[in-house]
């Protein structure tokens, strides 16, 4: 079984008609890491695939493509979302921030620095999603205690098992440490 959202002609259409159709596309304008972009894309394209395959922003990762792992977490209008579950065409006018947009030039975002200070990653694959999610967690104010951070970061899986250190990094960046 292959996954993904399939939009297409009505289900009663004959197969041959399905085959003949050009994939429906739409034009969308959105801001990614401060840069306005306008693209025409296949309606089935997720925000994650738009970032990775069309914009070359491969920092956001595809771990499950089903919203279960958080590796694809980005900020849309300041809120953290699973970009794998977000259709790109609904983001007209949206502001998207990815891991590539956090540092100011050479100056790392405090949470990026905290991840280095706490050794809060091993393989690094879930790290972009963890960091963006952590930025969201801090902005939302869910950093009152270690337990609260753990609860509000639980949408981001880390199979290397860096959770203890990720929690410390979020604490550090939130100014609790």
């Amino acid at each position: 079984m292959v996954g993904g959202v399939v939009t297409g002609p009505p289900v009663h259409a004959a197969e041959d008609a399905v085959a003949a159709e050009v994939p429906p596309g739409s034009r969308v304008s959105l801001t990614v890491n401060g840069v306005r972009r306008t693209v025409t894309i296949d309606n089935r394209t997720s925000l994650l695939d738009l970032l990775r395959e069309h914009f070359g922003l491969t920092g956001s990762k595809k771990g499950c493509n089903a919203g279960a792992c958080g590796a694809c977490t980005v900020l849309v209008d300041g809120r953290r979302v699973n970009s794998c579950l977000t259709l790109a065409v609904r983001l007209e006018g949206a502001e998207v921030t990815t891991i590539e947009g956090l540092a100011k030039g050479d100056r790392l975002h405090p949470l990026q620095q905290a991840f280095i200070d706490q050794d809060a990653f091993q393989c690094g694959f879930c790290t972009p999603g963890q960091i963006v999610s952590g930025v969201g967690c801090i902005q939302e104010g869910h950093t009152g205690s270690a337990e609260e951070i753990r609860e509000w970061m639980s949408g981001n899986l880390c199979r290397c098992g860096c959770y203890v250190k990720i929690e410390r990094a979020v604490e550090q960046a939130a100014g609790r440490k």
Binding site: T58, E100, I116, G124, P128
Partner: peptide, 19 residues
Amino acid sequence: VPRVDARLRVTGQAKYAAD
């Protein structure tokens, strides 16, 4: 000592196969 490739990994610049 901290990881020598830490910066690449926290900025999304580390290139994994599918990247």
